[in-house]
């Protein structure tokens, strides 16, 4: 696979002196779905804004399909569609009007057939003559997606696409992303949630404080970092770990009211059936069982420690 977006030593310093990106280098591959995973203020939006032309580069270089985003901005930008993080739309304009504007801005001749197909695909066709202020939040987000796709881009940026989105819309959105990928579109999305990155992306780039901590295939990353903990709430507190559980690596905590068992998602056998079986044999009752996944924070701590 070849790179479609190349970012070399990119630095962004805002006017107020805030350093949002520090010598950041990364490549996005043609046809992939890549998630930029990072906490608030990591620099995800800053990175996307630079690639799309919303903010200026302080230092470094970005090319899109070989075109420099500064000197060849027309060619570079016409390949890109952007769905911004915030719902920014003209309230009085109609769905059709705003989507037509987008297509025109990106230099494409009107194409009723394509736009109809696009709006239908996003379940907006019925609403095409409605003013945007009459739409629900989820519909507005779909309008933003329609605008971003109106000029048939080769690269789609989705900045936190699932913020304020319900389960159905999220599922629809992931389906659309997969379909777009099948059509050859490269999709770059940002998220705070590791589960989300895991669900949809091929590769994950972890970004923090303006730097890329790592870029990895999802499966590799999940193996490296995906630790889980099984927590068992006991009906009656124990004083010590019973004989039958002793060899399984179980810990007793919370004044003997909770058993915890760490396992690695990478390994084939989790060992959970053995733990639960031993509880039964020992006759230990429990009121609740749940698991905890290593959070983004844990991963950051681990990654930063590794560097």
């Amino acid at each position: 696979m070849s790179a479609i977006v190349q970012i070399e030593l990119l630095t962004k310093k805002y006017d107020d002196g805030k350093l949002a990106l520090k010598d950041l280098s990364v490549e996005f591959m043609k046809g992939e779905i890549i998630a930029l995973l990072g906490p608030n203020g990591a620099g995800k939006t800053s990175l996307i804004s630079i690639i799309c032309g919303l903010t200026t580069i302080s230092d470094g270089r970005v090319t899109v399909d070989g075109f420099d985003i500064q000197s060849d901005y027309r060619k570079a930008r016409s390949l890109i569609g952007l769905v911004p993080q915030e719902l920014m739309l003209e309230p009085f304009e109609t769905v059709m009007g705003t989507v037509s504007l987008s297509r025109g801005l990106f230099g494409q001749a009107p194409n009723d057939e394509y736009v109809e197909g696009l709006l239908s695909r996003l379940s907006l066709w019925e609403k095409r003559h409605s003013p945007i202020r009459e739409l629900s939040g989820g519909m507005k987000r779909r309008v933003l997606i329609a605008k971003a796709l109106s000029h048939e881009p080769k690269i789609l940026f989705l900045d936190e696409p699932t913020a304020g989105v319900d389960v159905d819309l999220r599922r629809d959105m992931w389906r659309l992303v997969k379909e777009l990928q099948a059509e050859g579109v490269t999709v770059i999305l940002t998220t705070h949630y590791i589960e989300e990155a895991e669900e949809i992306a091929d590769r994950i780039a972890v970004i923090n404080e303006g730097q890329i901590l790592l870029v990895e295939d999802k499966s590799v990353l999940m193996k490296r970092l995906g630790k889980k903990e099984l927590l068992i709430e006991l009906s009656e507190s124990l004083i010590a770990i019973p004989q039958g559980l002793a060899g399984l690596g179980v810990r007793l905590q919370n004044d003997g009211r909770q058993l915890s068992y760490s396992y690695d998602m990478a390994t084939e056998k989790s060992g959970i059936p053995e733990v639960l079986g031993a509880l039964k044999i020992e006759g230990i009752g429990f009121s609740d069982v749940h698991t905890e996944q290593s959070s983004l924070e844990d991963i950051f701590i681990e990654l930063v420690a590794e560097r």
Binding site: C52, G53, L54, L89, E90, L105, F106
Partner: peptide
Amino acid sequence: YFPKFLGTIYEHLSAPI
């Protein structure tokens, strides 16, 4: 001014114009 106020100016800034 209105697109600046609403933020919809992002689209013009990202467009090949």
